[in-house]
Design a protein around this nucleic acid. Structure first.
Lengths: 213, 213
DNA sequence: CAATTAATCAACACGGTGTTCATTATATGA
DNA sequence: TCATATAATGAACACCGTGTTGATTAATTG
């Protein structure tokens, strides 16, 4: 029935599941290999047959996810900043694919982005996003700097943090929003200012300045 | 010369300094009490005369900072969303005070917000900001929901993450921006969309929709 | 100078780590 | 089916950081 590889795979799945389970009560740092093996009813020695240590486990799990993110960014990013998507009120394919990926790994993302998770998770994905966005910007606007009074580094970090914040809000929440709804929220996050989102005098601070009084 | 209290205070300052020093190479979780006492040339037993454990140390340090944040938010928030500041191109006093506070504790904030820092640091300040903003919104717009197609929870989290991102970018960077410049960047973050910041067709996705096809 | 308090030092049991080696359980394929 | 791999178990090991204790030294106070 079960091959040797399937047997190993099942053990590793148990280990990963136990990691996420332990993560409900403890920080990643507080979780011990002993915790994981206790929860997964696996011998502690067995753990070390599969992973070098706890860090190795976490690295493999997160790298697996990050690779999928990179794949999406590298293959789908070309369509971003295409105005047609706005006129159709459709999210960029990149965005849609990323959201779908998150949906497929919601528990993992919730844990890793959460207080108990891996502090490296957010920065790693953030950096991937940042690179992809920068490439597209250069393609659209040329190599020069593209600031409206705001240093590039700030502007780009704000975009990535906007995307990450929406995703985090989504996985943290009750999950009532569909994938497409979340993708559309991200799209709005690109062309709406915070005050516009809140319905606060959308034009009071337009770029031309306002000398009403 | 040095009183007993000053003696103790100096020891605690050494401990805190050693914590930040150790944080340059290790995660907060990886830092051991032994690390801290080695760096500060203090007996390990002495550490336990001042703090219950490593967590207690971190909690005291962060709580001290967070209390100052709350004080600013509670005393200065009233002026926020006052249009006059926009017409004068001046940052809200709240923003200015927060930026000044960060400037005074730059190394601490850099560490705590960084990958090696306390995973609770960001969420705690974020929650404080969120509460303050919500209170002001209710004051300005009444108790109802204030969405422009974006759920409230998302919109408010986006504002706080925008502020936090700018602050993190600042403390991470070379520090070339002055306090006032950073405060102004935050102000722009309130009424500019990411695409507007990057100088990308600021009106292509306005709220009325664009059916140019 | 005597009393008080801060800091040091050595020793302790405890718990998790990563490794080892022998043993048991399961799958493979001739 | 049976011998052979290989996956998983179980027990033991030294190592390291923890948090505590009790005795000692150092510094401040009045």
């Amino acid at each position: 029935m079960t091959s040797q590889k399937e047997r190993q795979k099942k053990t590793e799945e148990n280990i990963i599941h136990a990691l996420l389970e332990a993560g409900k009560n403890k920080t990643l740092a507080q979780i011990s290999v002993s915790d994981i093996t206790r929860i997964s009813h696996i011998n502690r020695g067995t753990f070390y047959l599969h992973y070098l240590d706890k860090n190795d486990l976490v690295n493999q799990v997160t790298k697996n996810f990050n690779d999928k993110v990179e794949l999406i960014l590298q293959t789908e990013m070309g369509d971003s900043m295409d105005y047609r998507y706005f006129s159709k009120d459709e999210p960029y394919p990149v965005i849609m694919n990323l959201v779908d990926l998150v949906a497929e790994n919601k528990e993992l993302v919730r844990f890793m982005l959460g207080t108990n998770g891996d502090p490296e998770f957010y920065p790693t994905i953030s950096k991937e996003l940042k690179t992809a966005i920068l490439n597209d910007l250069k393609r659209v606007k040329g190599n020069n700097d593209f600031s409206a009074g705001i240093p590039n580094e700030y502007a780009i970090r704000l975009i990535t943090s906007m995307i990450m914040t929406i995703i985090k809000t989504w996985v943290d929440g009750e999950g009532d929003l569909t994938n497409e709804m979340v993708a559309k929220v991200i799209m709005k996050g690109l062309y709406l200012s915070p005050y516009e989102m809140l319905g606060i005098s959308g034009n009071m601070g337009n770029k031309k300045g306002n000398e009403k009084s």
